[in-house]
Simulated scan of single mutants.
Amino acid sequence: MKKIGVGVLGLGVGEQLARTFHAHDHCELLWVNDLDRAKSRRLSRELEAKEAENLEQILNDSRVDLVAVATYDDVHVDQVVPSLESGRHVFSEKPLCVNRKQLLAIKKAWEEQGGNAKLFSNLILRTAPIYRWLREAIQKGEFGELFAADGDYLYGRLHKIIDGWRGQRKDYSPMLGGGIHLIDLLLWFTEERPHSLFASGNNIATKSYDLGVEDFVVSTIEFDSGLIARVSSNLACVHTHQHVLRLFGTDKTFILDDCGSRIHETRKPDSEPRFLDLPSLPGSKGDLIPDFVNAIVTDQDTDHLTREVFDAMCVGLAVDESLKSGSKVEIEYI
């Protein structure tokens, strides 16, 4: 069978994506592109792909079936939309885009393909074994009724904020850039869309650098079921990179932090939690790619997955809206 021709834009995280596509039996890595020409030249030679000067060169190659976008957050839309309009499948790094206008443009370009172009964003925590187990346990009812959740995205990489591209963008969104992972997990676990939220934040940890962005953002999110979730994105914390999650059900409590993942199954004061020996991180940044490629090869209907990306994005965008307005907002889905 014909292999899926792939072009990859952006070789930060995109390098891992390129290597995953290159190693996949059903794919042929044709093009790589990065602003750092030395990097794209090195990787193109190593993986036997061509070095593209721009997106147009990739789209002009009729062999290309799929475009992977791993460039800076604020330019994703400039590559996702033309790729979809040309009929290509798109696998984009998170966030899919950075504002509502861009999201609507992406949705329009995707819908105009009538289901022929598949679109997904690299919400990679879905592949971690602990979260797959947790989702199944929640859907089986093992936790009873969920009533509270806490999720903290502890970035812990201050140098990337100060010296990297994030700190150079005055409208950089900590929630879209990191907290979106935890928002997606909560929607994925519950199969429920929240209706409203309130967000606040500060830049105390980085104010001396005059970056112009909030480095800590927290949001209280309300669901129709009564579940209330608190999600934060903490870019400058004095901590190693970590995802912290606590889920409170009427029958069990789940906690994941730097002490590991564990379940509390009783309120008895002398009880010990049950620790779970399951990885909380994916094996690589490319772990969603095999399923995406398989969906293309077998022509699976993945529209529901794309709409899940849109839903998570709408929640993340509502966080930014609330942060700017200082008021509670109703979440507008597209």
Rank of each mutant, 00 (worst) to 15 (best):
K3F: 00
I4T: 04
G5D: 05
G10Q: 02
G12V: 09
G14N: 14
A18R: 07
R19E: 04
H26I: 03
H26Y: 13
W31C: 05
V32T: 04
L35T: 15
A38T: 06
A38L: 07
K39G: 00
S40Y: 11
R41S: 11
N60M: 03
R63C: 10
V64H: 11
L66K: 07
V67I: 02
T71E: 01
T71D: 00
D73S: 15
Q79D: 00
V80K: 01
V80F: 01
R88T: 00
P95C: 06
L96S: 07
L96K: 11
C97R: 07
Q102F: 08
K107W: 06
K108E: 08
A109C: 04
W110R: 15
G115A: 12
N116H: 15
A117R: 12
F120P: 00
R126G: 00
Q139H: 14
E145P: 00
A148L: 11
A149K: 03
G151E: 11
L154R: 14
L154K: 14
G156E: 08
L158R: 14
I162Y: 14
G167K: 11
K170V: 10
D184G: 00
L185E: 12
L187M: 05
P194T: 05
P194N: 10
S196A: 13
F198L: 14
G201R: 13
A205F: 08
K207I: 05
S225L: 07
I228H: 10
S232C: 02
N234I: 12
T240I: 06
I255T: 10
L256D: 08
H264I: 10
K268H: 12
P269H: 08
P273C: 09
R274V: 02
R274E: 04
L281G: 04
S284E: 01
F292W: 09
A295C: 09
I296C: 03
D301F: 10
T306R: 13
R307K: 15
G316Y: 09
K324N: 09
G326F: 02
I331V: 04
I334S: 13
